[in-house]
Simulated assay, not measured.
Amino acid sequence: MSDDPNVGVDPALVSTRSVEVVVMALLLGVAVFLGWDNLRIGAGWAPDGPQAGYFPFYLSVLLGGASVVGIVSALRHPDLKDEIFVGRSAFGRVLRVFIPTILFVFLVQVIGLYVASFIFVALFMIVIGKLSPWKSVLTGLIFSALMFYVFDVQFNVLLPKGPLEAAFGF
């Protein structure tokens, strides 16, 4: 037995404190932008009631205030500096899902939603789920066909289509 308490522990990639400070700073930036934009369009009270930016401006003030409180709170708690937010292996597992999802979003723009969904579902089941290729391809086909039937045929919702749908006249 080893006396080292870190044996078998996933090495830290990012601390909780740094993630909290970065997220709060980003939210503060969004709040400042929204506040400025709502001041630009009018955040006061007009003779007929509130202007278009009145409520969104005060919501952005609340968001900015909460962000500042969050930053100060994270910086005042030194124990958060040592707390692990995500370890290296856990982050690798997140990337195994995140990267294919980003590729899916790109593929939707190039080849349409239905074909991209088929590819995404089938490859995800094969690579991540370790399922047999025939089950994965069949599931991807059924999912894409059902999605097409429900959205395109039944509800007549316009979703991004690619060259395959155009070849079939859709």
Score class of each variant (00 low, 15 high):
106 F>I: 15
15 S>D: 06
98 F>L: 15
61 V>Q: 01
143 F>G: 05
157 V>R: 08
39 L>D: 01
116 A>F: 07
30 V>T: 02
12 A>S: 08
159 L>E: 08
149 Y>F: 13
163 P>V: 12
152 D>G: 13
68 V>C: 02
86 V>S: 05
70 G>D: 09
70 G>L: 05
112 G>R: 05
133 P>W: 15
163 P>R: 07
63 L>C: 01
1 M>K: 14
99 I>M: 12
46 A>G: 07
136 S>Q: 09
102 I>D: 08
153 V>W: 10
136 S>Y: 08
36 W>F: 04
139 T>E: 09
101 T>K: 06
19 V>A: 05
141 L>Q: 04
51 Q>L: 01
72 V>K: 05
114 Y>C: 07
48 D>H: 09
167 A>G: 05
144 S>I: 07
34 L>R: 00
119 I>C: 06
45 W>R: 09
153 V>S: 06
137 V>F: 10
29 G>H: 02
29 G>P: 01
32 V>L: 02
147 M>W: 10
44 G>I: 01
17 R>D: 09
100 P>I: 07
139 T>G: 10
81 K>R: 12
58 Y>K: 04
155 F>L: 12
127 V>A: 06
63 L>K: 00
146 L>I: 05
46 A>L: 07
54 Y>N: 03
43 A>E: 00
45 W>Q: 08
17 R>P: 06
164 L>P: 04
69 V>M: 13
90 A>L: 08
77 H>P: 06
152 D>M: 13
46 A>E: 08
130 K>H: 14
155 F>R: 05
41 I>W: 00
46 A>V: 08
1 M>H: 13
27 L>Y: 10
36 W>N: 01
140 G>P: 03
36 W>R: 01
158 L>E: 15
16 T>H: 04
4 D>W: 11
150 V>Y: 07
81 K>V: 10
133 P>A: 14
114 Y>L: 14
29 G>M: 03
36 W>C: 00
104 F>I: 09
154 Q>R: 13
1 M>E: 13
108 V>M: 11
124 F>P: 04
44 G>L: 01
46 A>W: 03
36 W>H: 01
25 A>I: 14
163 P>S: 11
51 Q>I: 02
84 I>A: 02
127 V>T: 10
2 S>V: 08
102 I>H: 07
12 A>V: 07
164 L>Q: 07
82 D>W: 09
118 F>Q: 00
7 V>C: 07
144 S>K: 04
134 W>P: 09
107 L>M: 12
26 L>P: 10
100 P>A: 05
110 V>W: 07
1 M>D: 14
164 L>E: 09
25 A>V: 15
150 V>D: 10
48 D>G: 11
111 I>D: 02
1 M>F: 14
122 A>E: 11
